[in-house]
């Protein structure tokens, strides 16, 4: 079992519904977010391309955030989901600095917070909130170890990329390009 996501940049319109759905699902205070939208424009008018990506913690296989955590608050659970135990976090920020994706933020209550792949939903057989709400159906979540899962099939049949591969973190979110 290895959870991961495929996100289709050919369909994403950058509406940010994933951001709001995460906020309401996980009760994130106003002004903070666990996921966000990035846009990359290349070329000159009128020869242009635009790539829009919904980004979040990549739930990496190789996790600098967990390694740098002095208290063990940052850890990895079943399915490769990277989590933070809020009570054990001292807010030192080492993980925030070590993450190449800027995926972690300081919660106003004094701990570091980040995407959980909505593990509370996943254990009930639901998709993460961002995936379930997306009006463009551009996100796929599932078991990367299962070749028959929708997410595995998307990754197998489409051209993909990951973010900051040079960081060596082995991210588990794949962008379909």
């Amino acid at each position: 079992m290895r959870y991961g996501m495929a996100i289709d940049t050919k369909k994403c319109v950058g509406c940010s519904d994933c951001v709001v759905a995460c906020q309401t699902e996980n009760n994130i205070p106003h002004g903070y977010a666990r996921d966000w939208i990035s846009e990359t424009v290349s070329g000159t008018y009128p020869e242009l391309t635009l790539e829009i990506r919904s980004e979040r913690c990549n739930h990496c296989d190789n996790t600098p955030c967990v390694r740098t955590c002095p208290t063990g608050a940052s850890h990895v659970i079943e399915g490769g989901i990277v989590k933070v135990t809020h009570e054990e976090c001292i807010g030192c920020g080492a993980c925030v600095e070590s993450c190449p994706y800027d995926a972690r933020y300081f919660h106003p209550d004094g701990y570091v917070d980040k995407c959980t792949f909505c593990d509370h939903r996943v254990k009930n057989g639901q998709d993460p909130a961002c995936v379930s709400v997306c009006p463009t159906y551009c996100m796929y979540f599932g078991d990367l170890d299962d070749p028959n899962s929708e997410v595995s099939k998307k990754i197998a049949t489409r051209k993909t990329k990951v973010l900051a591969p040079e960081a060596g973190t082995k991210p588990q979110i794949f962008y379909l390009i």
Partner: peptide, 21 residues
């Protein structure tokens, strides 16, 4: 900034090689 607009090329911090957790 929940919306990040970048031009081409997004670099990341290089993490040292280390065993998987």
């Amino acid at each position: 900034d929940f919306i990040k607009i970048t031009s081409m090329g997004a670099g990341g911090l290089a993490a040292g090689a280390s065993p998987f957790v």
